[in-house]
């Protein structure tokens, strides 16, 4: 439950005041009238994770190029909580469906959240993910001092005794990969959620957990990636080195599991305003060709550049759908129920 009037900030006030002024100025102009000028105001973006994380850095770098192409600035609000549920519910319940309210989320992790926690919106009816930015392949990694030298050794040990694996949170594609691997090989993984990437990293580095599971894009000095859940190739091979594909090592058929941060918008607005929606899609896709974007990503190190690739609406929605299905399949192991 999120009361309709529960959120009222400076921007909210200005928005209402601005609407009155604008309405008087155009003398009762209809929605069509505004459409021609889209986008007519600053974009408000909800980021359902904490500031200072990967989504923060990635969205900032993207916005710095996108704002020039679309002609409007972006104002972000970070609303973390409940694996993204807080931010999503805020977006669907308290943000106008006018194309100026966007969401920047992690498609894979948050669609797992959708399947498990059943928040108050409908997928795919309510949302379009229209511009995926990065690829963070999920895998298994260890600290530089770990006795494990290969993913075979991890599984071999896990067949004799449970091996502890730190993950940032249970609703994550990396966790699904571990569950699928355990199912296929009979390995016993003791999966421990640490409530965020930072504590997860510390747990692996200090030896509290034997391995780490999840994204491999974040740079951790001295860590070794033992294997990735990718069917075709390790997309970060250029920066992270050659890493075996888990399916090839064990002859399994686990789907490619990766995280992708993507821009999203209210679907009803996009369907009702196809021309405006196209503006969003085209200008966001153009950011990938902007050398400034590359420069900023490389400089900030927020994600390896070889993992940055454009995913259009259909690819993003496909990924989202597959995550919902996988989460439903492994639902019992990912929830207390």
């Amino acid at each position: 439950m999120l009361a309709e009037t529960a959120f009222m900030n400076r921007r909210g006030f200005l928005k209402i005041a601005g609407s009155f002024v604008a309405a008087s100025a155009v003398g009762g102009a209809t929605g069509k009238g505004f459409a021609a000028n889209y986008p007519s105001r600053t974009f408000d973006v909800i980021v359902p994770t904490r500031e200072g994380g990967g989504a923060d850095g990635l969205s900032r770098a993207f916005i710095n190029s996108w704002k020039d192409k679309i002609g409007q600035n972006f104002e972000r609000q970070f609303s973390p909580g409940a694996a993204g549920q807080v931010g999503y519910e805020l977006y669907f319940k308290q943000r106008e469906m006018d194309g100026s309210n966007l969401l920047f989320g992690n498609v894979s992790a948050e669609m797992i959240m959708y399947a498990l926690q059943k928040p108050d919106f409908k997928f795919p009816e309510d949302i379009y993910y229209f511009c995926g930015i990065d690829t963070d392949p999920c895998g298994i990694w260890v600290s530089g001092e770990s006795p494990f030298t290969s993913v075979e050794e991890v599984v071999e040990t896990a067949m004799k005794r449970p091996v502890s694996i730190a993950v940032s949170r249970l609703p994550h594609p990396g966790t699904i990969g571990l569950l699928a691997l355990a199912e296929a090989t009979g390995a016993q993984f003791n999966i421990i959620p640490y409530g965020g990437g930072n504590p997860q990293v510390v747990a692996v580095l200090n030896g509290e957990a034997e391995c780490g599971g999840g994204g491999t894009a974040g740079y951790i000095e001295g860590a070794r990636i033992l294997g990735v859940f990718d069917r075709e190739e390790f997309v970060l091979a250029e920066t992270r080195g050659d890493v075996p594909l888990i399916n090839e090592v064990f002859g399994t058929d686990i789907p490619s599991l990766y995280s992708t941060r993507s821009w999203a918008v209210h679907r009803s607005w996009a369907d009702a305003n196809p021309d405006d929606y196209k503006v969003l899609q085209d200008t966001s896709a153009a950011v990938f060709d902007d050398p400034r974007f590359k420069e900023e990503i490389v400089q900030s190190g927020v994600t390896p550049w070889d993992g940055v690739r454009f995913r259009d609406q259909s690819t993003c929605m496909e990924l989202a759908q597959s995550m919902v299905e996988l989460a439903t399949k492994y639902g019992d192991q990912l929830t207390a129920g």
């Binding site: 439950m1 909580g81 409940a82 694996a83 807080v86 926690q117 249970l170 959620p193 929830t335």
Partner: peptide, 14 residues
């Protein structure tokens, strides 16, 4: 902290 199951939130996402 483990499963993300809401406890005593009475439906308030806040």
């Amino acid at each position: 902290f483990i499963y993300g199951t809401p406890r005593a939130t009475f439906g308030f996402i806040e």
